[in-house]
């Protein structure tokens, strides 16, 4: 409802508004119910082991990589496009960062030690920006379909990574970076904090800024948005740059977690990011999707994965269940429509 009269006040207000934002729309409510059901079922099967600090923490360690990559995919999906080059971008940026860190860091101390790390990360983000600009330019200004464009950059960027490293792994990163992937702050994995640091501004940008509003409009009808006085080409360019930058952050987190970088890490994640986004309510045709939904979807996927891990099921069974969940969740409203429950 557009103007609820008086929001509840008092200590519960914050919690209520959080629940409200997560369950506000139909998709999110459905996902929230699914999540509760999954937790209950796994809790019953696995028992207390499922609720230990270690389990929860391990989930929190694993979620950010896929999470950040899914956000990178999501923003382009909302705009009616998609970005197949996110994984190769993440890897190339990680390689560049890892290269600088392993070549320049050893032997430095203090200011130089910190400085080179900052330089490394800056270079990674710079590379990501360039890739994003190339994607955005070709898509927005030349009018090539996003799938072809990003398929091309995906191949090219991966090719650069392989070419420069001859397919080898760069490893042996400084402890400070390893901490980013494997350490905790007050019990919260650092990677999770990084995820939060990119998610919150992204949620604000999509939900509360002119840029975000334009992104949704473009996703449904670019021409009409342009006729409303929005420089749609510039917005699309920015979308692909942001997507690339998110990929670079994901590259940093992956590099930190594996303590290494390689041109072909995590390639199987590519289609999983689309799966996660669509499960979270992002319309693959564009125009719709909220961060809260994608986060719920990521948590669901992670809960399944962790539970199966505890049950000693193969990770491939996890994959199959993820696929089944996607079909199931998207089919529910259509099945109900067929049965005449809603008209």
């Amino acid at each position: 409802m557009s103007n609820a009269p008086h929001p509840p006040r008092g200590p519960d207000a914050a919690l209520m508004s959080l629940i409200g934002s997560l369950t506000g729309d139909v998709t999110n409510r459905r996902l929230a119910i699914l999540l509760v059901a999954l937790v209950a079922v796994f809790g019953l099967i696995i028992g207390e082991g499922f609720f230990t600090k270690a389990t929860v923490q391990s989930m929190a360690f694993q979620l950010p990589e896929l999470g950040i990559l899914s956000l990178a995919m999501m923003i382009t999906l909302i705009s009616g496009g998609l970005n197949l080059s996110i994984i190769s971008t993440a890897n190339l940026c990680a390689l560049a960062m890892a290269y600088i860190m392993t070549k320049m860091l050893p032997g430095t101390e203090g200011f130089a030690f910190v400085g080179w790390q900052i330089v490394a990360i800056a270079v990674g983000l710079l590379i990501a920006s360039i890739i994003g600009l190339v994607n955005g330019f070709i898509i927005a200004y030349l009018g090539v379909s996003p799938i072809l464009t990003t398929l091309g950059t995906m191949t090219m960027v991966k090719g650069i990574g392989i070419g420069m490293t001859r397919g080898n792994v760069i490893s042996g990163l400084p402890d400070s970076i390893v901490f980013l992937g494997n350490g905790t702050v007050l019990g919260i994995p650092t990677a999770m904090l990084v995820f939060a640091v990119v998610t919150i501004p992204m949620a604000i940008a999509l939900g509360r800024t002119p840029f975000g509003a334009a992104t949704y409009m473009i996703g449904s009808n670019e021409k009409a948005t342009q006729f409303s006085g929005i420089d749609t080409k510039r917005v699309i360019l920015r979308i692909y740059v942001i997507s690339s930058l998110l990929a670079a952050v994901a590259g940093l987190v992956m590099m930190a977690r594996f303590n290494s970088a390689n041109a072909s890490y995590a390639e199987s994640y590519l289609l999983v990011t689309i799966l996660a986004a669509v499960l979270g309510g992002v319309d693959p045709m564009g125009g719709f999707g909220k961060i809260a939904g994608v986060i719920l979807s990521l948590v669901i996927l992670q809960v399944i994965s962790s539970a199966f891990n505890l049950l000693n099921f193969s990770q491939f069974l996890t994959l199959a269940i993820w696929g089944a969940i996607l079909v199931g969740v998207t089919a529910v409203p259509n099945i109900r429509k067929r049965l005449g429950l809603i008209d």
Binding site: Y216, S220, N221, F227, G287
Partner: peptide, 12 residues
């Protein structure tokens, strides 16, 4: 097709 983005909310 040019005047409105039909799928999006009235408010937007």
């Amino acid at each position: 097709t040019l005047g409105l983005v039909l799928e999006q909310p009235i408010a937007s």
